[in-house]
Nucleic acid binder design. Structure first.
Length: 540
RNA sequence: UGGGGCGUCGCCAAGUGGUUAAGGCACCGGGUUUUGAUCCCGGCAUCGGAGGUUCGAAUCCUCCCGCCCCAGCCA
C-alpha cells in the first residue's frame, strides 16, 4: 500500500490509532477501521493506540467508553499501552492555542453562529474577514482565559485560527478551535468551560502520541490541509500524516451512530446489542464470531471508492467461519411426534456421534434414542405424489434416514379432533445405524430428530434483515419507514438435543439442516439466537 | 457553481503501456455426500463516454458524462 513507500525512509515505525468518539456503540463499519489500523500496525511490527476522541461532552458518555473497550478487546486486538483520551491533552492543547495567538495565528472572535456563517461565504463566493480578526494577542489571550474560566456565555465567543477567509477550501476559512460549553465532561468534570474542536484536536493528539499514519475516512479529506496547517504551525513533537480511505457501507442496514442511536432510543430494537443491530455487541449476541468479522474486514479493500458491500459477502464469511468451527447439533423447531411401533417402549439406545463431520478434535456427543421422537413438521408431507427428487423427506409409506440413526418408514398419521396431524406412527428398519441402507430400501433423504423424552425445551429466535430496502437511507423517506416489521420471529416449544441444555452464550452450534445458533446472553431460560441460516439452494 | 475525491463483471475489487483483464461474493450448470449444508469441477466483463498518442492502452493526453464529500461554535 501507500505505506510501503513511506516505509522506505519517511517513517521508521508505523504507529496508528483507532480514535472513536465515545458517543455510541461500535458497529461493523468501525470493525473495518479497527482491522485496518491494528492490522497495519501488526503487519509492519508497529503499534496501534486506542484513543477516545472525547472533545464534545454533549454527546459522550462513560457507558460508551466501556462498551467500546470491550468490543475492541473482544475482536481480539491489543492496543499499545494504556487507553488514551483526547481529554488528557486538554492542557497541552490550551497552551498551543495560546502559542498560536502569540504568533498572531489565532484570535478570539465574537461573531455569533449566524454571523459567522454569513462571513464564511459560500462554495462559490469567498468569505469576509471577521471584525475581530486583528484583535491584539494580549486581548485574545485575556478573552480566551475568560472563556475558559466560565466568565463568558456560551455562544458569545470562539477561538479561531487565522488562516484565509478566501480559501477555496471552506475548512480553511478561519476554523473554530475552541467553543464554550459550560458542561461537565465525563472525565475532566467541571474543569473546562471550553472544549477544542475536532480540527484543532485531532492532528495534535496524533502528534503527541507519535502517530505515523493517521488513517481516517474519506469525508475528512477536505480537513487534511487544516490538519497539516496546525501541525506545521505548532511546535508539535512529531509530524503525523493523514490518509483517507472509504468507509464500509453494507446494504440492508444503516451504519451511522445517529441512526443506530435512534433505533435504540425509540425502541425499534431492544438495545445496542439487539441481535439485529450491525453493532459489534449486536453481532456478538447474534452469534457472529470475531474471526468472521475479521476475515470479512480483511476481504475488504482499503481504497478511495465509496461502494456498498453486499450483505451476502458478510454472510459468506459468517457461514464460512461457523461451518468450520461450530459443533453440530440437532434441534427440532417445529416438533411433530413420531412413535416407532416396532421399537419397544421401554428400550433406549445412545448413539455416540461426531461433534463435527470433518473435525475429530471437537468433542463427540451422545444422542439418546427411544420409542418416541420428534421430527420437524416441515419434514413430513401428506402428499405422497411428491417425487423423491422434489421432496427428500418423509411421506407415508416411504423411508427416510434419521440423521446419525435408523432409517424409518412412516406408516400412518394420527389426527386430533380438529383434523390436525398430531403424530406419525412409523417403524424403524433394523440394523441400519451407521450402515448403508439395505437392498431394496432407498431413503428419500436425511432428516434431523430429537428424542421425545430425553431432550431440552427451548425457544428459538429467528432474525431477518432489519430493513426491507437495500439502501434504507436513500430517497425521500426516513430510514425508519423501511424497517422490516418481521425482522424477529420467536418460536417457543422447540426441542434441542439434551447435550445443549447447558449451552453457554459464545458457543456456536450448527443445528443441522437449519442454521447456526448461539445461546442468547440476555435470557435466563434456554433461548437460541439464529446467527444465520444454512445456504439453501433448494428450488421449490 | 468553488475546492477535494472517485468511476474495471449484478456487488466488493486486482491491475499504472504488451496479461487469455486476477480473486472473492452472488448467480448458473455438473459431481461427491447419513446436513437439499460443506467439499469438488465448470461457466460468467474489454475496463463511464468520445476523440487522440502509440506497433500496442483499462493503463498516457484532451474533452465530456456521472457519483460522493466540504458552507456545525459535530466528529
Amino acid at each position: 500500500m501507500i505505506n510501503h513507500d513511506l516505509e522506505s525512509g519517511l517513517v521508521n515505525r508505523v504507529i496508528t490509532r483507532f480514535p472513536p468518539e465515545p458517543n455510541g456503540y461500535l458497529h461493523i463499519g468501525h470493525a473495518k477501521s479497527i482491522c485496518v489500523n491494528f492490522g497495519l500496525a501488526e503487519q509492519y511490527a508497529g503499534a496501534c493506540n486506542l484513543r477516545f476522541d472525547d472533545t464534545n461532552p454533549e454527546k459522550e458518555d462513560e457507558e460508551y467508553v466501556n462498551a467500546i473497550i470491550e468490543d475492541v478487546r473482544w475482536l481480539g486486538f491489543e492496543w499499545q499501552g494504556d487507553v488514551c483520551y483526547a481529554s488528557d491533552y486538554f492542557d497541552q492543547l490550551y497552551s498551543w492555542a495560546q502559542y498560536l495567538i502569540n504568533e498572531c495565528k489565532a484570535y478570539v472572535c465574537e461573531l455569533n453562529a449566524e454571523d459567522m456563517r454569513d462571513y464564511r461565504g459560500t462554495l462559490t463566493e469567498p468569505g469576509k474577514n471577521s471584525p475581530y480578526r486583528e484583535r491584539p494577542a494580549t486581548e485574545s489571550l485575556r478573552l480566551l482565559e475568560e472563556m475558559k474560566s466560565g466568565q463568558i456565555e456560551e455562544g458569545r465567543m470562539t477561538l479561531r485560527a487565522k488562516i484565509d477567509m478566501a480559501s477555496p477550501n471552506i475548512n480553511m476559512r478561519d476554523p473554530v478551535m475552541y467553543r464554550i460549553k459550560k458542561m461537565a465532561h465525563q472525565r475532566t468534570g467541571d474543569l473546562w468551560n471550553i472544549y477544542p474542536s475536532y480540527d484543532f484536536a485531532h492532528g495534535q493528539e496524533d502528534a503527541i502520541e507519535g502517530i505515523s499514519h493517521s488513517i481516517c475516512t474519506l469525508e475528512f479529506a477536505a480537513n487534511r490541509p487544516l490538519y497539516d496547517w496546525f501541525i506545521a504551525n505548532l511546535p508539535v513533537p512529531s509530524e503525523p500524516r493523514q490518509y483517507e480511505f472509504g468507509r464500509l457501507n453494507l446494504n440492508y442496514t444503516v451504519t451511522s451512530k445517529r441512526k443506530l442511536k435512534q433505533l435504540v432510543d425509540e425502541n425499534y430494537v431492544e438495545g445496542w446489542d439487539d441481535p439485529r443491530m450491525p453493532t459489534i455487541s449486536g453481532l456478538r449476541r447474534r452469534g457472529v464470531s470475531p474471526r468472521a468479522i475479521r476475515s470479512f474486514c480483511d476481504s475488504l479493500a482499503v481504497a478511495k471508492t465509496d461502494g456498498v458491500v453486499d450483505m451476502a459477502q458478510f454472510e459468506h464469511f459468517i457461514r464460512d467461519d461457523l461451518n468450520t468451527n461450530a459443533s453440530r447439533a440437532m434441534c427440532v423447531i417445529n416438533p411433530l411426534l413420531v412413535t416407532l411401533s416396532n421399537y419397544a417402549a421401554d428400550k433406549t439406545e445412545r448413539f455416540i456421534v461426531p461433534g463435527h463431520p470433518n473435525r475429530d478434535d471437537l468433542p463427540e456427543r451422545t444422542l439418546p434414542f427411544g420409542h418416541q421422537l420428534y421430527i420437524d413438521r416441515n419434514d413430513f408431507s401428506e402428499d405422497t405424489s411428491l417425487s423423491r427428487k422434489k421432496f427428500k423427506r418423509l411421506v407415508i409409506g416411504d423411508y427416510v434416514r434419521l440423521r446419525s440413526a435408523y432409517i424409518i418408514r412412516a406408516d400412518k398419521v394420527v389426527r386430533d379432533a380438529a383434523g390436525e396431524i398430531i403424530e406419525i406412527v412409523g417403524s424403524i428398519v433394523e440394523d441400519t445405524v451407521g450402515k448403508d441402507a439395505p437392498e431394496g430400501i432407498r431413503p428419500r433423504g436425511v432428516i434431523h430428530w430429537v428424542s421425545a423424552t430425553d431432550s431440552a425445551d427451548c425457544t428459538v429466535k429467528l432474525y431477518d434483515r432489519l430493513f426491507n430496502k437495500a439502501a434504507p437511507d436513500a430517497g425521500e423517506q426516513s430510514f425508519l419507514e423501511h424497517i422490516n416489521p418481521n425482522s424477529l420471529t420467536v418460536i417457543e416449544g422447540c426441542m434441542v438435543e439434551q447435550g445443549l441444555a447447558n449451552a453457554s452464550a459464545g458457543d456456536h452450534y450448527q443445528f443441522e439442516r437449519e442454521g447456526y445458533f448461539t445461546r442468547d446472553s440476555q435470557s435466563d431460560s434456554l433461548v437460541f439466537n439464529c446467527t444465520i441460516g444454512l445456504r439453501d439452494t433448494w428450488k421449490t
